[in-house]
Amino acid sequence: MARPPKELTPEKSVEDLLGSKIRKLRLARGWEITELAAKVFVSPGRISSIETANDPPGRDLTLKLEQVLDAKGALLELQTLIRAEAFKNYAQRFLRDQASARSIHEFSPGVPGLLQTAEYARALMAVSFTDNPEGLEDSVVRRTERQVVFDGGNPPWLWIVLAESALYQVHDRPEVMVKQIDHLLAMSERPYIHVQVLPLDQPAVPGSISLLTLRDGTRTAYAEGFHTGTYYQEPDDVDRLQRGYDHVQAGALDLDASAQVMRNARRKHQR
């Protein structure tokens, strides 16, 4: 006997409302999930995830659903609201996926969170928590706790392109930078962690780019600027950010030369 479909509560979230509308439109046409899936070229499981509000569709898939269900713009409007809500909490889903990713490729103008020492993270975030020291400490703990992914039996493959300026800009005290660079060098000795330095005379891109390959092979991308960020899952968006990453990596030093630049920067902070 087939399991009854999950009961949705459209008033609970925009995701539930979107899933409910898609289910109603499908049922109004007398289609099974497999029929709708075939019409928009996805798996039945994907449609099930959408209808149960577990994994809302991206813009491209929403447009296909709009067309085959003749939704007259209602689905796209809801999907736009979901994207807007996701933007408010822009890092949450990225950080969740990063924690279980198979590989991570990143360009960063500063030392990325997965390779930060607690002292460096504290100095970096202190400006945002001038009147909330407890909040600062909580944020530092959460950031450093993410690094536990490297201590398990199946760590992600991490490849970082780091802007050279990050090695010379002092956060808090020179001693903080010495310890941070030591940590970068030590982590780079692990066979699954690689750090390339992008020299000052090479072109970069604004903000940071993170490319994830998830355990099931799905590719996603995250781009971040000053207090803003967007998590991309549509293939065209991921490809666009991949090209940006490839551009900066092409100008980066090799691993040995990068390690030497890090050691040079360390000596400068010791003077």
Rank of each mutant, 00 (worst) to 15 (best):
Q92M: 12
P155K: 04
E137I: 01
P109L: 13
Q116H: 04
L95W: 03
L115R: 10
F41L: 13
L27N: 04
Q147T: 04
S108P: 00
G135V: 03
T34D: 11
R143T: 13
A118D: 02
S103I: 00
Q98S: 13
V148C: 11
G153Q: 00
I33F: 06
R29C: 07
V140G: 08
A74K: 05
N89C: 07
E145W: 08
T62G: 05
H105C: 12
S100M: 00
F41D: 13
N154C: 08
P57R: 04
L158P: 07
T62S: 02
L61C: 05
V149E: 10
V149P: 11
Q98I: 01
Y120W: 06
I104K: 02
N54Q: 11
G153P: 08
L95C: 08
L25R: 06
V42K: 07
R29E: 10
I50Y: 07
A101Y: 02
Q147D: 01
E134G: 08
A38V: 09
P112L: 09
L61E: 02
T80E: 15
L69H: 07
N154G: 10
E51Y: 00
E164L: 07
S100T: 12
S165K: 07
A74D: 00
P56V: 11
V149M: 06
V111I: 15
D97P: 04
A118G: 08
D70P: 03
E137M: 12
D60V: 14
E32W: 14
P156D: 00
K72I: 06
R122S: 12
D131R: 01
A91H: 01
R59V: 15
S139R: 13
K88L: 15
Q79L: 06
Y168K: 02
R26H: 03
I82A: 07
E85D: 12
R93M: 13
T144P: 00
A163T: 11
G45K: 08
A118E: 14
V68R: 10
L124D: 03
R142Y: 06
A38Y: 11
D97S: 08
A28F: 04
M125A: 12
V141S: 09
F94R: 02
P112H: 03
E106I: 13
V111M: 12
L63Q: 10
A28Q: 02
K72T: 13
A126Q: 04
E145S: 14
I160M: 09
E32G: 10
A123L: 04
H105F: 12
P133N: 10
S128L: 09
D97F: 15
P133C: 05
P44A: 15
R122L: 03
I47L: 05
L95K: 05
